[in-house]
């Protein structure tokens, strides 16, 4: 990544393109990451949005965007992106707008849509080689309806539809692998708590063409039940425990951009969050904790 303009924290913009005043929760990890993403992408973008928390970014007559925005529905944001991309290409090809009027098409979607309803339209868009950047802000549940279990909910987490004593029985879907199985132009995992890594990856994604994927883990004080002030701490621990591996895919290769060494025990990350409280109280649930740790250990062992 030697060509990056982001060599150190100080290189990150400290005045931001995205307007304040949105309805996102205080301490929103998705919004915090989006600040830097938008700074890097800039306003020559059209954000095509699927139903989710961020649908409320633009509420008539208010929008934080300097660039463009289109709300579609929950299932079909990539299809909306397709229509915008095709129309722009047609207009340019026919000389009805100058090339300078072109926009980058960005899909903005939560994990609920990305892992569920929106997956088929996403797969179709990648398969068609659509030139778009797909951003999934992942707060590991249907956050905007009160944190019900989604395809991204991790094992053991309590949600509005996964109760005690053990929390969610299933496992977080590996959306990154689903994407890379499609052999896209680029895919990366990021987190707002590691802004340099995030900025570099968004910068690289923006420089490429074709289907590109930025998967943002978005610590959610409301849905995960922690104090808003701890959002960055939660995010850093997601990386330090190895639960959220930072990596990127390009030309058929997956490379880890950060290898936590030594890895902190997963309990440090889980303990901060009310959604995992039942794993510690009234008695520690050693079995579930052990299996979460084991999965992380297995992942990194396989990653070499």
């Amino acid at each position: 990544m030697s060509e990056t303009r982001f060599q150190r924290m100080k290189d990150l913009p400290s005045t931001h393109l995205l307007g304040a005043g949105t309805a996102m929760c205080a301490g929103c990890g998705a919004l915090q990451a989006l600040q830097t993403i938008y700074d890097v992408l800039g306003e020559r973008t059209v954000f095509v949005n699927a139903a989710g928390c961020m649908t409320l970014l633009s509420v008539y007559p208010f929008t934080p965007f300097r660039g463009s925005w289109l709300y579609t529905a929950m299932a079909c944001a990539p299809a909306g992106a397709q229509g915008v991309r095709d129309a722009l290409d047609i207009l340019i090809a026919k000389g009805r707008i100058p090339p300078g009027e072109d926009l980058s098409v960005v899909t903005l979607t939560g994990d609920g849509a990305a892992n569920g309803m929106g997956l088929s339209s996403t797969s179709g868009a990648i398969e068609r080689g659509l030139d778009f950047l797909y951003i999934c802000y992942d707060n590991e549940g249907y956050g905007n309806t009160g944190q019900q279990t989604s395809g991204a909910t991790p094992h053991g987490a309590r949600t509005a539809t996964s109760g005690a004593p053990h929390g969610h029985a299933g496992f977080k879907k590996d959306l990154f692998s689903i994407w890379t199985a499609h052999r896209p132009a680029y895919a990366a995992t990021v987190i707002g708590a590691e802004p340099l890594d995030l900025a570099r990856k968004v910068e690289k994604a923006a420089s490429l063409r074709g289907p590109r994927f930025i998967h943002v883990l978005a610590p959610c004080p409301t849905g995960w039940d922690f104090e808003p002030s701890e959002m960055i701490d939660v995010g850093r621990l997601a990386v330090r425990t190895g639960i959220w591996p930072l990596k990127e895919y390009e030309n058929g290769q997956v490379v880890h951009t950060r290898t936590p060494h030594p890895r902190a025990p997963v309990e440090e990350y889980l303990r901060l969050q009310g959604r995992f409280r039942h794993l510690f109280e009234p008695e520690p649930d050693a079995e579930t904790l052990g299996s979460i740790q084991q999965r992380v250990d297995d992942y990194w062992e396989a990653a070499g």
Binding site: Y142, N144, T145, G146, Q148, A160, T161, G163
Partner: peptide, 17 residues
């Protein structure tokens, strides 16, 4: 889930649990 219906399925889920 969808607002403003979600409480229905949450209630039923609780009863089933």
């Amino acid at each position: 889930p969808i607002t403003p219906q979600t409480e229905i399925i949450e209630t039923i889920e609780r009863w089933i649990e």
